[in-house]
C-alpha cells in the first residue's frame, strides 16, 4: 500500500463562447440556492463545545503556583498580589470543616494581557486546580489600552468589568 504516481488527464479544451456559456450556467445556477451567511448580531451561530476564548479565574481555588505564568508562550500572564481572602472572606470546604482559603499564601493571582494572548489553552491545561479556565465568551471588544485584565476582572463576567 504505497502511493502510486498518476499522470493527470488534461480535460478537453473548451470551445470559445460555448465554454463561456457553460461557465455562466455553472455560476448562475447558484442564484436560487440558500445563502449560507449568518446575520451576526441578530442570530448567533451555535458555538462548538470546545470553542475557547475569554479566560476566567476562580479565585477560591487558585493556589498561586505560577505554573500558568511559566507556561504562557507569549508571557501574557503576570502574577499580581490581590488580598482577595480579606476582601471577600473566601471560605474553602475541607475535611476539618470550613475555613479561610489559605492555600494561596503569597496572595498572588494571574493577570492576563489579552492583547498578546493567543488563546492557546496551555494555562488551562497545566492548572492543577482548574482555577484558570477558558470559556465560550468572545464578545469583549476593548480600547487599545485596556487589554490587561487584573485578577479581579478575570473573576467577573464581561459585563461587570468596567474599563
Amino acid at each position: 500500500m504505497v502511493a502510486t504516481i498518476k499522470e493527470i488527464k488534461i480535460p478537453k479544451k473548451p470551445i470559445p463562447i460555448i465554454g463561456s456559456l457553460e461557465t455562466m450556467y455553472n455560476v448562475g445556477r447558484f442564484m436560487f440556492k440558500k445563502p449560507i451567511t449568518t446575520q451576526y448580531p441578530e442570530e448567533k451561530g451555535e458555538i462548538p463545545e470546545r470553542f475557547r476564548f475569554r479566560i476566567f479565574l476562580s479565585p477560591e481555588s487558585c493556589i498561586g503556583c505560577t505554573l500558568c505564568e511559566q507556561i504562557c508562550p507569549n508571557h501574557s500572564i503576570k502574577m499580581e498580589v490581590w488580598e482577595v481572602e480579606k476582601e471577600q472572606g473566601l471560605v474553602v470546604e475541607t475535611k476539618r470543616g470550613a475555613r479561610e482559603n489559605l492555600q494561596n499564601k503569597r496572595h498572588i493571582y494571574p493577570d492576563v494581557n489579552f492583547g498578546t494572548c493567543t488563546v492557546c489553552r496551555n494555562c488551562e491545561e497545566i492548572c492543577p486546580t482548574n482555577a484558570i479556565y477558558l470559556t465560550h465568551q468572545f464578545e469583549d471588544a476593548r480600547t487599545r489600552n485596556s487589554f490587561t485584565y487584573s485578577p479581579q476582572e478575570l473573576a467577573r463576567q464581561e459585563d461587570d468589568v468596567i474599563k
Binding site: M1, A3, T4, K6
Partner: peptide, 18 residues
C-alpha cells in the same frame, strides 16, 4: 511517498503529476 510519515504508507492514494 518518498519518506512516509504518520501512516501514509498504510493508505492508498495517487501522486498526481503533469
Amino acid at each position: 511517498k518518498d519518506a512516509p510519515y504518520l501512516f501514509y504508507d498504510k493508505v492508498n492514494f495517487d501522486i498526481p503529476i503533469s
